[in-house]
Design a protein around this nucleic acid. Structure first.
Lengths: 243, 243
DNA sequence: GTGCAGAAATTGGTTGGACCATTGAACCAC
DNA sequence: GTGGTTCAATGGTCCAACCAATTTCTGCAC
């Protein structure tokens, strides 16, 4: 009977500050890298204490929307808009082998779906862009005789973008960043990712042919090679432990 | 040559506070719902200003780890551990129909994978738990003659848990929460989700039979019905706009 | 004019103290 | 019990100052 009686909103200074700031960013058409007003100016203009401004900015900083540089200023790190929604995820204990495999299971599901959607929706321009990234990656592979994680990542990103759903890039990018922050040289496996090389071309072929199920299948094969590399690395690690 | 020389950490008071607090939580074995020390006590014990404590807690609050109630105290909202990783996602413009469809594309990929993994990994106890939730849901469906989002959600969660990968539940739960915060009564469609009812049983049957591909297929069918409902709702909305 | 070192201004980070608003418990009258 | 009242505890906000890193300006040497 007393449903639909949510608690009323009594005070929300920080939220109000962020709302005003988001409006300001849109009005001034500020983009990533540009500088925000200083905390003191914001406090004065918004008629709130500098502490309140700082709490609000701390929120945005925690969400990765903004970067503060002491002595310099506060800078936008991503596009912000007044109507954005936040979805913070915390991964408990993600920095071990099991955690890595768990993120890979998520990536397998998303990677396959993104490739399939891309095969359906990519237009001529998107396909040309993906092929361009693929050429760069293959060139780097042959000259340096090995996978280059930088060019490899660029290729995958272009696929996510062409999927028509920016969430794929956002979620996988966030996991990719975590992945590399803790596993820069994964488990000491040389030629890590080497086996995944040929599937980049086959994925592209399926996308260019607008064959979603084919693209999904090739993407799954690619992820499978990464999983194998990871397991090999884990075996190496156990070997080292015994020594 | 000068790689792997990250800038030294000159100041990081808030991070240090959070680290200490995470250690405290683990030592005291505090769980969700339990109360943290007051800001004043933390400031005194950690030998930092109360403002610094507040900035640190603001971070955790933004990540949804903690809830602050004025006049009462600060309470844990989720399990925290010293080794957790954060992955904040922001969805630009997620509160319209297109945004809803985008989240559903992500959910389709994850739901299918979770169902398949569940069919592989679920043991007898997990299968019994899922069947229990399914019985409750079907009971509610028949007595109230309609889908109950509460019991429906419980069923799906039990599947995610049995997948053996907590990330599925975390990510889908976060999207589910956003979904419901802005679409409590989605688009005025009566009997929303009605068509999805039979697939809950078929998904369970495949899981119980340890048939991953079957479970994946049934999960995809279920999501397809939700997409149809959503499109019907969008059509209704356009009709209303014309009036 | 150019280049560079040091001074000065700017900006985020931190501190301490004060007061306000809300909460919850204890207490009291009915 | 039910409904007020009081009061201490707690988070929310504010202010004023100072610290630390960065940027900008200034003036001198050449």
């Amino acid at each position: 009977m007393t449903d639909s009686l949510p608690p009323i909103q009594t005070t929300a200074r920080d939220d109000a500050v962020l709302k005003a700031l988001a409006g300001f960013v849109r009005q001034e058409a500020l983009g990533p890298g540009e500088k925000l007003p200083t905390e003191r100016i914001l406090a004065e203009r918004l008629k709130v204490s500098r502490n309140t401004v700082r709490e609000a900015l701390t929120r945005w900083e925690g969400l990765g929307l903004v970067e503060r540089r002491q002595g310099s200023g506060t800078y936008l790190k991503a596009a912000v808009s007044p109507d954005m929604l936040h979805m913070p995820l915390t991964l408990a204990g993600g920095n071990d082998f099991a955690g890595l495999m768990r993120t890979l299971e998520i990536r397998r599901a998303l990677e396959a779906e993104a490739a399939a959607l891309c095969a359906i929706r990519a237009g001529k321009a998107e396909i040309a862009e993906i092929e361009h990234k693929l050429d760069i990656m293959e060139e780097a592979f042959h000259t340096r005789a090995g996978m280059s994680s930088e060019e490899d990542w660029e290729f995958h990103q272009s696929v996510y973008r062409a999927s028509g759903n920016p969430l794929f890039e956002q979620i996988i990018s966030a996991m990719h960043e975590l992945f590399h922050r803790f596993w820069e040289h994964p488990l000491g496996v040389r030629d890590f990712g080497h086996a995944s090389f040929p599937y980049h071309r086959t994925i592209f072929d399926c996308i260019a042919a607008h064959d979603p199920e084919g693209a999904r299948g090739e993407a799954l094969k690619l992820i499978a090679t990464v999983e194998d590399d990871l397991k090999r690395g884990a075996a190496n690690l156990k070997l080292l432990d015994r020594k």
